[in-house]
Design a protein around this nucleic acid. Structure first.
Lengths: 414, 414
DNA sequence: CTCATTTCGTTCAAGCTCTGGACTAATTAA
DNA sequence: TTAATTAGTCCAGAGCTTGAACGAAATGAG
């Protein structure tokens, strides 16, 4: 009943084993070939051969002899070479554009955020500006001797990833935009095909790579912005559902008798816990066109009110927290995550919102689970999705390094 | 960040390619080697070799020459051999035990349901009775020349699958039961290790194999019994979450102000749409100890009332449908399924419950999705989970036929 | 200081599996 | 009867991993 068991040839075998060894090197670096043979189960011969290939491709480096304290011939340590290959992460959001270059050693080599009011701006112009940002990032990478292997773009909307199109991005005012083509037109051709993904998914991935990390376990990352989305990560992988639209937390119904939503439903979470709803309830005008996140933005104004103990603001945020908690408890029952991460605007509002969230989560999970999931707050800034996008490129290389190794040598057709 | 890229050896390659060919045979049978070479991309040589191995293992059969209407040498058709290997599915539920034997050709060869009041009965005794059932099923298989390759047990509770233990099965009154050991003690050793899975997951799988089939796409299968669970299938695979507890629909909160639930929450779905809640609201005594599903059970009584247009019964079921729709709309937003399947008691109640479900689903999915998911009703009877369990065994063989082929020949260590 | 011991990594022949072209087999069309 | 066409097998060859033997580089005992 399952579809996707693909034929394996020698090339495929080699490609996967390269990934196995590269992954183990990354996990344990610096590490000797002997130890790699141990942990992978390969013979020393095979490890040597695989390491040699990775080294030739510049993905791996020999650090020279290292005596491990014991007797015997000292090992030559091998580690991931962070100075040759990098991934480019790009992000389009309502009020900014971001780019970020991440090398294979997981060091951020370049990071650039530009405020920009993209609401209702023509997609061509937005992508044009993004392309500029990307070119500057690629140049910056080049200056450091890095080759950008691929790029991923984070977009705040629903995507047809296979077709490279944005279906709808309500907060940008986009509808059926061929973002992939537009971007491909402006960028140099990279070794890996460019890809797009949802902002919420990538922000979640960013949290895994640059925030709390693997201790998160499986988690739901709430990306509160204008809309409310969630990125769901299970066993280190983003769960996208069958069509890539999973995790639409914003339209989970929290009050069946509530006001109608643009989506056709009633009482969706977004109408209580979306940024605009919160601001409205707190009595702050949502100045469209102003940078939301900036120091003068409405979000800063809200936080100031909260600090001052302003009643309506506190009530609005508490109400949002309750609703968020309710929607998240559904997500907890359905996904069984270890952790919930509050990101986006909720990261700033957490001191006031999270008690209500925690209360809602603490309740309804007793029969099945031993304990409610941990609740944490994102440490990342606004460009979390750009970071996650770059991480996705690096992950892709790590998972199939053969993609970057002379195509002639290993044509493991898929 | 991902963990599980495993080394590939020659044996692994062979094993996976055997699965590729076997899968293609199953999908297209009867089919010639030449066509298999075409669709898999293997050379004719390789296909012949793989088919020969499968044939030697009794998994595949040659049907003799077949002229395909065109000119040229006629092909020899190959198809899955349904007469040698079978899977055993077992099910423990509150008021019955079930067993089912499914051959590799997906034909049900044996099916047996026994009414039994398992509430509060000692786990040893229940498993003992199940073992009897299993032995009879294995004997019945043997009489038909079938070898049972493996078994899967469906249990109504939360499981630690790796450890072979039942954590809690509230409706059975079980707590931390080593079901795996108990069963292994009573059964002959099979080629594949026995396994357990949640009743809801397996019922969902049963629907895919013996109900509506692949046209379901990705779907959420609601298993309404005493509790309310959901099996989630994405791309033909059961989604279990990180710990196997995903899909706990019954404890999604549908009314934060509702009555407290045993799980610690308030207003869980189960308190409105669980069997006991519905019966109570409809004014029917839930006679504990009586077979629920039988012709004299309370469920039959409820359906009779509904047929007669009884006011409280109609209201109770309608209310359950509303609540179920609300919880499902959360699942729809979070999982993005193509279809919702109503199973278990909801299958019988569907004529009265589904309008409310449909209404709830029709609303809140407009922005993201083009249309709400299809709503269908399960066609399967009470032993859906036993069928799914047997299907899981067959699926396992199809996905790695090498498991059944002389271990000496292909030790593809994982 | 020398030699046995230990561990690291390479070399080389061998084995497993897929590939590709040649070959045989079985049928239709002319 | 012969040419054309399609199915399946045979066999040499190539890619990748294996395993044993070997050389290299260190430590420790005498």
């Amino acid at each position: 009943m399952r579809n996707e068991i693909t034929p394996v040839r020698h090339g495929t075998m080699r490609a996967r084993n390269l990934a196995v060894v590269l992954g183990e090197i990354s996990r344990r670096q610096p590490v000797s070939r002997a130890r790699l043979a141990d942990v992978t189960g390969f013979t020393k011969t095979t490890v040597s051969s695989l390491v040699a290939a990775l080294k030739a491709a510049g993905l791996v480096r020999e650090d020279g002899p290292v005596r491990d304290g014991e007797r015997g011939r000292p090992a030559t340590a091998v580690s991931v070479n962070g100075d040759r290959v990098a991934g480019l992460g790009l992000e389009v959001n309502v009020d900014y554009l971001a780019a970020c270059v991440l090398d294979l050693g997981r060091r951020i080599r370049h990071r650039h955020i530009v405020a920009a009011d993209n609401r209702g701006r023509a997609p061509e112009r937005v992508i044009g500006a993004l392309t500029d940002l990307a070119e500057r990032a690629i140049a910056a990478a080049g200056d450091q001797g890095l080759t950008v292997a691929g790029a991923v773009v984070a977009l705040p909307g629903t995507l047809d990833r296979a077709g490279g199109r944005v279906r709808t991005a309500p907060n940008l005012g986009w509808r059926d935009v061929a973002a992939g083509e537009l971007l491909a037109g402006g960028l140099p051709t990279l070794a890996l095909p460019a890809d797009q993904d949802n902002e919420a998914n990538l922000a979640a991935l960013g949290e895994l790579w640059f925030g709390h990390g693997p201790e998160l376990g499986s988690y739901v990352h709430v990306s509160g912005e204008i809309g409310v989305g969630a990125g769901i990560v299970v066993d280190g992988r983003v769960f996208r559902g069958a069509h890539g639209f999973a995790g639409e937390l914003g339209h989970v119904v929290v009050d069946p008798a509530g006001p109608p939503c643009a989506c056709g439903g009633r009482g969706c979470l977004e109408q209580v816990a979306g940024q605009e709803a919160i601001l409205r309830a707190a009595g702050i005008p949502d100045t469209v066109g102003t940078s939301t996140a900036g120091p003068d933005g409405p979000l800063a104004a809200l936080v100031a009110l909260l600090r001052d103990g302003d009643g309506p603001a506190l009530a609005a945020v508490r109400r949002a927290g309750e609703a968020l908690g309710q929607a998240l408890s559904a997500a907890v029952n359905l996904f069984d995550p270890d952790t919930i991460v509050l990101g986006g605007i909720f990261s700033a509002l957490a001191p006031w919102a999270s008690p209500a969230v925690e209360e809602a989560l603490g309740g309804g999970t007793g029969v099945v689970r031993h304990a409610p999931p941990r609740l944490t707050v994102s440490r990342l800034g606004g460009d979390a999705a750009a970071l996650g996008a770059a991480a996705l490129v690096v992950e892709r290389v790590m998972n199939d390094p053969a993609l970057l190794m002379e195509a002639s040598a290993h044509p493991h057709g898929r």
